[in-house]
Amino acid sequence: MFTYILYALAAAFLLFSFIKDRKKTAAALRKAWKSFESILPSILTVLMIIGLILTFLDEEMISRLLGSDSGILGMLIAAAVGSITLIPGFVAFPLAAALLSAGAGYAQIALFISTLMMVGVATMPLEARYFGKATALKRNMLSLAAALVSSMILGDLI
């Protein structure tokens, strides 16, 4: 749904831009293509990694590791799975809901969701290309720490 809004937005701005200045619009499209093309090798590599991860870490396996009463170990696993995998939200939320009803802890699930959103081990090479290795590493470490603290608080509060 939101993708359609994004397309509509891009189309509207593109049309507006075209009416105002054709040359600038052509330049914009050239730039769009070039920035896409320059990042394409990294994107394709990440997609290949996603394929392998989804193959060897399937839903059933994640369920088993994160199951009920997993305690600290479960937290570690939640953080690791969330940080390493790149599951899209439309898959992750139903999975998280299923895990919760199967008896998983709220803190573990919150940690899994938070790290999934904020920490990206597989995409770190891509991030490093844009901001440098040290910065990418720092952002991911800080995000992991923030996810840990906020999940433990959420586990207490809920």
Binding site: T3, L6, Y7, L9, A10, A11, F13, L14, S17, T25, A27, A28, L29, R30, K31, A32, W33, S35, F36, I43, L44, L47, M48, I50, G51, L52, L54, T55, L86, P88
Partner: peptide
């Protein structure tokens, strides 16, 4: 097939983002 699915998903999201960026 997982990689291919992700590729399709990404290709469907990326064009408007890069067009907006260019603009």
């Amino acid at each position: 097939s997982s990689s291919f699915d992700s590729l399709i998903e990404m290709l469907s999201i990326i064009p408007p983002i890069f067009i907006l960026m260019g603009l």
